[in-house]
C-alpha cells in the first residue's frame, strides 16, 4: 500500500460545475414552487383543506432545500462545517433567550445570519436549511420552512459580500429587505400547510386582513410583510453586534471575511494570501 502524500494539490474545479448545477436546481425548485402555488391557489378554500397545495409546497420547497444542502455541504471546509451546529444551537438558545425578554418577535435565525456573514452565502443557505431540518427533531412544524431559512442565510451572505456589514446602520436595512423576501416565500407554507400562523399575535393580524376580505394567502403574505422585515432587521443587527464583538483572530480566520472585507476596520497588515 503506497503512502498517501503529506501534501494536497489545489482542489480541482471539475466537480464544481455539477455542484453549481445542483445549487441552481435547488433555487429553481423553490422559485418554481412559489410561482406555481401563487398561480394555482385555490379560489375557494371552503371546499376543503388545500391538500393539493400543501403537498406541492412541501414537496417543492423541501426538494429545493435538500438540493441546496447536497450541493453545498460536501464542499464546505471543516472550519465552516463545525460552525453549523453552533449556529443551530444559537438559533435555538438565543431564540429562547429573546423570547424570555418578551419582545414580540421570533428571532430564530441569529446563528444562520452569523454564519452567512462569516462564511458566505452558500454556507449561510446550507445552515438555514439544516437548521430547519435539525430543529424539526423537536418541533416538526419548522421543517416546511427550510427553504425560507435557506434564503435568509443566503441573503445574509450576499449582504455581507457587498459590504452592508461594514456600516453598522446598513445591517438592519439588509435585514429588512431579507425579511420581505423570506416572508413572501414562506407565506404559502403557512397558508396551505398550517392554514395560519402559530402565534396569537400574528394570527390577529391575519384575521384583520381576512376580515377585509383577503384570500388566506394574501392575508398571510401581508402579515409576513408587517412582521418579518422588522424581525430580520433585529436579527441582522444582533448578528452584526456579535460579529464586531468577536476578536479579530476569530473573524479573520474566515477566508470569506478576508477576501470581501466583510467587516469594517483596517485590513490585516499582511497581504491576503
Amino acid at each position: 500500500m503506497s503512502q498517501p502524500a503529506l501534501t494536497v494539490t489545489d482542489p480541482g474545479q471539475a466537480a464544481g460545475r455539477g455542484r453549481r448545477l445542483l445549487e441552481i436546481a435547488g433555487a429553481a425548485s423553490i422559485a418554481a414552487t412559489y410561482v406555481f402555488l401563487v398561480l394555482t391557489q385555490p379560489a375557494d378554500i371552503a371546499n376543503g383543506p388545500a391538500s393539493f397545495s400543501a403537498l406541492v409546497a412541501l414537496g417543492g420547497f423541501l426538494l429545493g432545500a435538500v438540493l441546496l444542502i447536497v450541493a453545498v455541504l460536501p464542499v464546505l471546509p471543516t472550519s465552516t462545517l463545525v460552525l453549523i451546529p453552533v449556529a443551530l444551537v444559537l438559533n435555538v438558545v438565543l431564540g429562547q433567550l429573546m423570547g424570555s425578554t418578551g419582545l414580540p418577535f421570533y428571532i430564530d435565525a441569529i446563528g444562520t445570519v452569523l454564519i452567512g456573514v462569516l462564511a458566505g452565502p452558500a454556507a449561510g443557505a446550507a445552515t438555514g436549511a439544516l437548521s430547519s431540518i435539525v430543529w424539526s427533531f423537536f418541533n416538526p412544524t419548522v421543517l416546511p420552512f427550510a427553504a425560507g431559512a435557506a434564503l435568509i442565510g443566503f441573503l445574509a451572505g450576499m449582504a455581507a459580500r457587498i459590504g452592508l456589514f461594514r456600516r453598522f446602520y446598513l445591517a438592519p436595512v439588509a435585514g429588512f429587505i431579507t425579511g420581505i423576501l423570506a416572508g413572501v416565500v414562506s407565506a404559502p407554507i403557512a397558508a396551505f400547510v398550517f392554514g395560519g400562523t402559530s402565534g396569537l399575535g400574528t394570527g390577529a393580524i391575519v384575521s384583520a386582513f381576512r376580515a377585509m376580505g383577503d384570500t388566506l394567502l394574501a392575508a398571510i403574505t401581508k402579515q409576513a410583510l408587517i412582521s418579518d422585515p422588522m424581525d430580520k432587521g433585529i436579527v441582522f443587527t444582533i448578528a452584526a453586534l456579535l460579529a464586531y464583538a468577536l476578536p479579530r483572530r476569530t473573524t479573520f480566520q474566515f477566508p470569506f471575511v478576508r477576501r470581501f472585507r466583510v467587516l469594517a476596520g483596517k485590513a490585516p497588515s499582511a497581504p491576503d494570501a
Partner: peptide, 23 residues
Amino acid sequence: ELDGTRLDFHGAPDDPRINPAEW
C-alpha cells in the same frame, strides 16, 4: 521536515498545502 520530506513555506499562494489527515 518530516521523515526526509522537506516542505518550504514562503508565505506565497503557491506554498505547499499540508494534508492534515496524513500529517
